[in-house]
Amino acid sequence: DYDYGADDEEGGVAIRALYRIVDRNLDVPVRPSAGTDHRYAYTYWHTIANLVAAFRDLYCTAYGADQGTAT
């Protein structure tokens, strides 16, 4: 429920779009299960890690400088 800013703010639209992609990938039907091939499971979790890193980087670029928290 975090406020990612208005659509016209820098980064607001991009962060919302990336959030929807991450949310879609975390949906239960696409997650690996106990019977999933280990290669697919690895690829899935690797993709999730990359999406989270992209979300972090985009957020820090858009809002970190304002708050002095960009690293």
Rank of each mutant, 00 (worst) to 15 (best):
D27A: 13
D66I: 00
P32Q: 12
A34L: 07
G11I: 07
I21L: 01
D37V: 08
Y63L: 09
L51N: 03
L18C: 04
R56S: 14
N50M: 14
D3G: 01
Y42S: 06
Y42N: 11
R56W: 15
A49L: 11
W45R: 05
R20Y: 04
D7W: 07
A53M: 10
E9C: 01
F55S: 00
E10V: 05
G11Q: 02
V13G: 15
D1R: 10
V30A: 06
E10W: 10
A41I: 14
F55R: 11
D57I: 02
I48C: 04
P32D: 05
D8H: 06
Y44K: 00
V28T: 10
P32F: 01
D27Y: 10
T71H: 12
Q67H: 15
A54L: 10
R24E: 08
A54E: 14
H38P: 03
T61A: 08
A70T: 13
Y59R: 07
R16A: 03
G64N: 00
P32H: 06
V52D: 08
A62R: 10
A41F: 07
N25K: 12
T69F: 03
T43P: 11
G12D: 05
V52N: 06
Y44F: 09
Y2N: 15
V22T: 13
T71N: 08
T47R: 08
A14N: 07
D7M: 12
R20P: 13
T43S: 11
N50W: 09
R31W: 09
Y4I: 12
G12S: 10
R16Q: 08
Y44L: 00
R20C: 11
C60G: 12
Y44D: 01
Y63G: 02
R39S: 14
D1T: 09
G12V: 00
A6E: 11
S33K: 13
G11H: 01
A62E: 02
D57N: 02
S33F: 14
W45K: 07
T71C: 04
A65N: 10
N50A: 14
A17G: 09
D27F: 11
T43Q: 08
Q67P: 09
Y44G: 03
A65V: 13
A34Y: 09
I48Q: 07
T69W: 09
D8A: 06
A62W: 01
Y4T: 11
D8S: 05
T43H: 07
V22F: 12
G68P: 01
Y19R: 08
L51S: 11
A17F: 12
A70K: 11
T69K: 13
D3T: 05
T47C: 10
T47I: 14
T71P: 15
L26C: 07
Q67I: 10
Y4C: 03
L58S: 00
C60R: 03
R56P: 01
A54I: 09
R39P: 13
T61N: 12
Y63R: 00
A6H: 12
A65D: 14
Y40Q: 01
T61D: 13
R20F: 01
I48N: 04
V28M: 10
T43V: 13
I15V: 15
H46D: 14
A65Q: 04
R39K: 12
Q67S: 15
I48W: 02
C60I: 03
Y59M: 06
E9A: 12
G11D: 04
A49R: 10
